Simulated scan of single mutants.
Amino acid sequence: MTDLRIAVILGTTRPGRNGKAVADWVMEQAAGRPATYELIDLADHELPLLDEPIPPSQGQYQNEHTKRWAELIAQYDGYVFITPEYNRSTSGALKNAIDYLYAEWNDKAAGFVGYGSIGGARAIEHLRGMCGELQIADVRTAVNFLLATDFVNYREFTPGDHHPPIAQDMFAQVERWAGALKPLRG
């Protein structure tokens, strides 16, 4: 599993977002794992609202930003999506970034880290449905941070001591599935 590459995708671009602190925590927790974890911050990628004229399932990308995004995402064996919960779903930025591609996501594994009033649970449920459509195997264990208990004044990230073992379980599941699916991608 040491040759596995897992992207940790920070799924919000909002100014003043809580997600950056969550992403930093996830990367700290992933340190020393048998797979290589790399952070992808959607704020660093200029992806306008989906502007490809041909459905992504056809793989005929026209725009340079889409081709760059596809090249980046294709190199990973799995993903950990960090999602806020906005209006009972994931962020528009994450949904848009996922919708740009198809084959680059196929036959890979994904785990989830959510945060919000109920730990991002509804956002994660929406992401699970999207993953099924994209042939991404999502793992059972998710890390859920509650705004009321894991953030001081809903802003300063102070995760509880019970979260690290949950994160380690999620990482292990993502790594196992990513390794098992790798032969399917040739």
Rank of each mutant, 00 (worst) to 15 (best):
L47H: 14
V143D: 08
L146F: 11
Y100C: 05
K182S: 08
P34V: 03
F81E: 11
V8L: 09
I124F: 11
V22W: 02
W105T: 07
L72A: 06
Q135L: 11
K95Q: 12
R128E: 10
G120V: 15
L134V: 02
I9Q: 03
R5E: 07
G119C: 12
L4A: 05
T12A: 09
D161F: 02
Y76V: 02
Q29C: 06
H162R: 13
T2F: 07
R14M: 03
S91V: 04
A70H: 03
S89H: 02
Q168G: 01
D161L: 10
R88G: 00
A23I: 04
A167I: 04
S57T: 04
A110T: 10
L181K: 04
E175F: 07
S91M: 09
R17P: 02
R140W: 12
Y115D: 15
T2G: 03
D107F: 09
L4N: 00
K20V: 11
L146N: 08
A110K: 10
P53S: 07
E71T: 00
P164N: 11
V174C: 13
E156D: 15
A7M: 02
T12Q: 05
R140S: 14
N96H: 03
Q168V: 00
H162Y: 12
W25D: 15
F145P: 12
N153W: 02
R185N: 15
N63M: 03
R68G: 00
T158K: 15
M1A: 02
Y61H: 13
V113A: 13
A43Y: 08
E64V: 05
E85S: 02
P84L: 01
S91K: 12
W177T: 00
Q75M: 03
